[in-house]
């Protein structure tokens, strides 16, 4: 599979994940939405696509270094790794400007779970795009 296929799968997975994130939060009620449904569905789709694109690119470029055989497991690892890296930077920002950047534990737990979901969706799409594994290879 080439990079383009990974990016395409990443964008599709990301948009679906954005909608799923909205739905998940609507069910859990972890964070009360402040924007309208129309505004949020657009922003969640766009931000999800960006996250999916980044995760797909990371999987394409660094996937072979991740010590798992299954592409789904590698995608979950890549997605969770990126989320943790972003969260650690967020922690640093929170330490520098605590009035501006608040840490929110229930949101953190939900976010980590959602990052695993993004990896799973991406991994499944990549596996489908790659086609069946060669027999007796």
């Amino acid at each position: 599979m080439n990079l383009k296929e990974y990016l395409k799968s990443g964008v599709i997975a990301g948009v679906v994940w954005g909608w799923l994130s909205y739905l998940t939060n609507a069910v859990t009620g972890v964070f009360p939405f402040e924007g309208s449904f129309a505004q949020d569905i657009v922003s969640f789709s766009f931000a999800g696509a960006v996250f999916g694109l980044g995760t797909g690119a990371s999987l394409a470029l660094f996937g072979r270094f991740i010590p798992f055989r299954s592409v789904v497991a590698r995608a979950v690892f890549a997605s969770a790794f990126i989320w943790i890296a972003l969260r650690l930077v967020g922690d640093m920002l929170s330490m520098m400007e605590p009035e501006r950047y608040h840490l929110f534990t229930p949101g953190t737990i939900q976010g980590l779970g959602l990052s695993i979901v993004l990896g799973a969706i991406l991994g499944i799409l990549v596996r489908k795009a790659a086609g069946p594994a060669p027999v007796n290879a």
Partner: peptide, 19 residues
């Protein structure tokens, strides 16, 4: 970051620190 306002809900939902 208007850009902040646009993605405010998304960032909270995925657990990133925000206002």
């Amino acid at each position: 970051e208007g850009v902040h306002d646009a993605f405010h809900d998304f960032r909270h939902v995925i657990g990133m620190p925000c206002h």
